[in-house]
Design a protein around this nucleic acid. Structure first.
Lengths: 176, 176
DNA sequence: GTCTATACACCGATAGAC
DNA sequence: GTCTATCGGTGTATAGAC
C-alpha cells in the first residue's frame, strides 16, 4: 500500500499483466478513473461481505455478529487493510481524488445509518444507537490499525472475539 | 497527507522556504533521511505530549486521564492525523522506509508496555493490563479514524470524553 | 548555507501499427 | 485489444557559483 501517488502505471500494468497503453483502453480517463473503479470495487466488496448482513429476518444481535464476521473476512482476518480507509486517510488537497473522497464519506454515512438502525431495532434509542454504531466501527478499525502497528494480527482476531462476546452478552444470544 | 511518494522535494522545499538543493545540505541522505528525521520528530512529539504523562507520582487513573488529554492535544483535538499511523499504514514493500517502519513498530511496543504497566499499577493482572492497553490505543486511533471518515471531528472529542469518563468511573476518581 | 542550472530516470498519457 | 515507441513534464539528486 503506497497510496495514490505510489501506484504507478508501470506497477498497475505489470500487476494486470498488460502494457501501460492497454490500461488506457479500459480506462480512458487515465489514473483517476482507475482509482475510481478501485474505490467502487472496494465499496461493493465491503458492502457484500459485511454490511449486507445487517439486513434480514434474524435478530439484531445475530445480524451484528454476522456483520463483524463479514468485516473480519473482508480484512482477511486482519492481515489485509481496508482500501477505503487507506485511500481516505491518505489523500487530501488533491483535485484528482476529491470525488472519491466524497463518495467514501457518503458511503460511510450510509453504512453508519444502517448500523445504527440495527441497534435501534435492538431497543436502543436513536442517540445511543448512533453512538453504538460509531463505537463499533471505531473498535473494528482501531483493532485493525493497532494489529498493524504492532505487527501482530492476533491482536485483531482477539479484539473481534471480545467484540462478539460483548454483543452476545448484551443481547442475550447464543454463541454462533 | 499524501504519503512518502506524494511528498515531493519541490513541496518540501517550498514548505521549508528553501530550494531543493539546500535540503541536501541539511539531509545529505536525500529523501529517506528527511523521512527518518520526520519520523523521529513525530515520535519525540507524541512521547512528550502524551506518553510522558504516564509516569509520575500521581495515581494510575489520573495518569491515564492526562495521557488521553495529551493524545488529544497531539492530534489537535482530532483535527490532525498521527503521522506515525499514516506512515506505518502507508509503506510496505519499499526499501527506503523499511527502517522507519521497524522503528515505529518498536516504539509502539515500548509505549504499549508503558501503558500496560500503568494498568498493572492500578491493580490489573499482566494479561488484562496488556489487553486494556491495546484496547485504549485502539479506541483512540479508531475514534480518530472514524472522525476522519465521517468528516466530523466531534466524533473524536465525544469519544475522548467517554473514554475519560469510563476511566474515571473504573478507578473511582474525581473528574479533572 | 543558499542558490541556479542541469543530469538522468521515470511519470502519466498518446499515436499508430498490428 | 494489445503492443512498441515516444511525447512533455516532473521526480530525485548533483555540480558548482556565490
Amino acid at each position: 500500500m503506497r497510496g495514490y501517488d505510489g501506484a504507478t502505471l508501470t506497477n498497475l500494468a505489470s500487476a494486470a499483466g498488460l502494457s501501460k497503453a492497454s490500461l488506457y483502453h479500459h480506462f480512458p480517463g487515465g489514473k483517476p478513473e482507475m482509482a475510481a473503479a478501485l474505490v467502487r470495487h472496494a465499496i461493493a466488496d465491503l458492502q457484500r461481505q459485511a454490511f449486507s448482513r445487517l439486513s434480514g429476518h434474524q435478530s439484531p444481535g445475530t445480524r451484528l455478529l454476522k456483520f463483524i464476521d463479514g468485516f473480519s473476512a473482508y480484512t482477511q482476518t486482519g492481515e489485509s487493510d481496508c482500501l477505503l480507509a487507506v485511500f481516505n486517510h491518505h489523500n487530501t488537497a488533491t483535485e484528482e481524488t476529491a470525488t472519491q473522497q466524497l463518495l467514501i464519506n457518503q458511503q460511510f454515512d450510509d453504512w453508519h445509518a444502517a448500523l445504527a438502525s440495527v441497534y435501534e431495532q435492538a431497543g436502543l434509542r436513536p442517540k445511543k444507537a448512533k453512538r453504538a454504531a460509531h463505537d463499533l466501527m471505531a473498535a473494528l478499525y482501531g483493532a485493525l490499525l493497532i494489529a498493524k502497528m504492532h505487527n501482530q494480527p492476533v491482536l485483531f482476531t482477539d479484539a473481534i472475539k471480545r467484540l462478539k462476546k460483548d454483543i452476545t452478552r448484551q443481547f442475550d444470544l447464543e454463541t454462533v
